[in-house]
Every structure is written in C-alpha cells, then in structure tokens.
C-alpha cells in the first residue's frame, strides 16, 4: 500500500513537471529547465548528505568536472553532445572516486574541510589554466556544435524534455538505490557507522560507492548544463555552488527523494525575487541557512514525513 502511494506521489510529481511545459510562459519555461538540471545535482548531493550522512562542502568540483569535461571537448574537439555528456559524467565519476579514496580517510567534520579544500584547489586550477578555460569569463559554446540528430539544444521544448529526462533518470536511480540493500546499508552508516562496522560491513567501500554515485549525478548535471545552456565558467566551481546544493537539499528535506527539486525551486525564485528588490541575495541565503538549522532542521518534505506522510522515501 505504502509502496503504491509513494510510487504515485513521485510519478505524479514527474507528470506535473511534464505538463507544466505546456502552460509555463517562455521565461519560466527556461527557468524550470535549469531548475531540473540543478535539482539533478541536488539529488546527487543528497545521496551523500541525506542518505549516507557525509557532509561535503565541495560538490561544485564534481559539477564542474562534468561541466568542463563536456564543455571543453565540445569547444576544442567538436565532439557530438551525446559523447560529450557521457564523457562528462564519466570524468566526474572517476574524479569523485579518486577524491573519495583520499578524503574518506578522514572522519566527521574533517571530511567537510577536506572536500571544501579540494574544491577550492579545483577552482584555482581552472583559473590557473585560464588560457584553456578562459577562467571567470568562461567559454560560450556555439549553437551549431550543440545538435543531437538534427535537433538543436537551443530549442526550448527539446531542452525542457531532455532536462526532464535527466531529472527523471536521477530520481529513479536515487529511488531504486534507497530501496535496495545497498541503500539500507548507507542509511545505517548515517545512523551509526560503528555499529554497521561491527556487523561486518566494509563501510569504507559503501561510502566510496555513495560518493562515486553522488559525483556521477553531479557531473551528469554539470555536463548537461554546459550542453544545454552553452556556457562554461569558473563560477560553477566556486564554493558558492557547493553551498547552494547544501541549501537546496536542507530546505527540501535531506534524505527525501523529491526534496532537492523543491529546495532548488524555492531558492531559485526566492533569490531571484530578492535580487529584483534589494540586490542582496547573500542575506537571503545566509538567513535561510541559519533559520533552517534553528527552526526547521528536517526541511519541507522531512517535516511532512514526520508529521503525516510516514511512507515518504
């Protein structure tokens, strides 16, 4: 019964996203496309923080790994978008695994510090090789290079549905993962790692797997972002982008499948609305983080699950 409810809930959300494209005005249509890509990044981040309980502050490096791997190869070697996407996702997967082998040797808050540090080193590397990457200014990918089978990625409808497909893929992967045996081990690690070790699980391997999957989804989102919007720049690798992922996930509800998109959607429009009025998005982001920890630590869906929808995964 609960299983059906939860399937209907998530299927309904996806159907709603599909139907929205017919009613949204062009401006919000583009916003929703980008929100779905960013929410995919959020889902990747959520696998690590929400289900495995590892707080990373450097996920922008995985997003940027996908973004740059896809963007640079399209720009310099003119490869087709599908190969570029696969390359971007694979690059992020390999990179996340490598980072995990080193960073997961630390425990607790050191993991946060180390991931933040590595991400900053990546950001500086992008600036350091600015002859290739054009640093802060970034690269614009030409529309001609972004064609899949005769359809251009600049076409809004095509782009919207590709973003929806990407988001659906991430959502399904996350859903299957947490319903699986592996997913339950990850949640157990979040709750009490020592006890899981005592039961004979090699927790390091599980944490590495979670980080690799999380990096894969973040990188897939980064690669899609580069290909769909045709821009690759160092800002996407900055600490700010790691913090955004944290904020979306906490606001939507850490450890809930749909939390990241709810958080990304709300923050996107909140930041945009305040930018129009005051130009001070920092105070909104800052206040949101402080208020969430003080009064709303479980986020929107987390609170709903506690109060009503016990079956929500």
């Amino acid at each position: 019964m609960d299983r059906h409810r939860s399937l209907a809930f998530h299927g309904g959300a996806l159907a709603l996203l599909f139907l929205l494209q017919f009613v949204l005005p062009p401006y919000h249509h583009t916003n929703f496309t980008s929100i779905m890509v960013l929410a995919t990044y959020g889902i990747g981040y959520n696998i690590l923080i929400g289900y495995t309980g590892l707080l990373s502050l450097g996920h922008a490096m995985f997003f940027a790994a996908g973004l740059y791997a896809a963007g640079l190869t399209v720009h310099y070697f003119n490869i087709d978008p599908i190969s570029a996407f696969i390359l971007g996702a694979a690059a992020a997967l390999a990179f996340a695994t490598a980072v995990g082998l080193v960073a997961l040797r630390t425990t607790g808050v050191s993991f946060m510090i180390v991931t933040m540090m590595f991400a900053q080193a990546c950001f500086l590397l992008i600036l350091y090789f600015n002859q290739v990457t054009r640093g802060d200014e970034g690269l614009v990918l030409s529309g001609a290079a972004r064609q899949i089978g005769g359809l251009s990625l600049t076409n809004p409808t095509f782009r919207y549905n590709l973003a929806l497909a990407l988001f659906t893929g991430a959502l399904v992967l996350c859903y299957i993962l947490i319903r699986s045996r592996v997913g339950r081990v990850l949640v157990a690690i979040r709750e009490n790692e020592e006890r899981v070790k005592m039961l004979g699980y090699h927790t390091f391997r599980y944490k590495l797997l979670a980080l690799a999957l999380s990096g894969l989804l973040s990188g897939a989102a980064g690669a899609s972002y580069a290909l769909m919007f045709g821009y690759v720049g160092a800002t996407f690798a900055s600490i700010e982008y790691s913090i955004f992922a944290l904020l979306w996930v906490l606001l939507g509800g850490a450890g809930t499948v749909l939390g990241p998109i709810i958080g990304a959607l709300l923050m996107f429009y909140l930041v945009e609305w305040t930018s129009e009025v005051t130009q001070s998005y920092r105070i909104v982001v800052g206040a949101a983080l402080v208020l969430l920890t003080l009064f709303f630590p479980k986020g929107i869906l987390g609170t709903l699950r506690e109060k009503r929808l016990r079956w929500l995964p």
Partner: peptide, 20 residues
C-alpha cells in the same frame, strides 16, 4: 557539529552582506 557548520555558513553570508 553538522548544524554548526550549516549555521556558520549562513553567518558567513550574513556578515558579508552586512559589511557590504
């Protein structure tokens, strides 16, 4: 520990904005 990290990130932004 985790809540402190999140809250101090928030404070980082608030302090920067106030100084700005």
């Amino acid at each position: 520990p985790e809540a402190t990290i999140v809250a101090t990130i928030g404070l980082l932004y608030i302090i920067q904005q106030l100084v700005l």
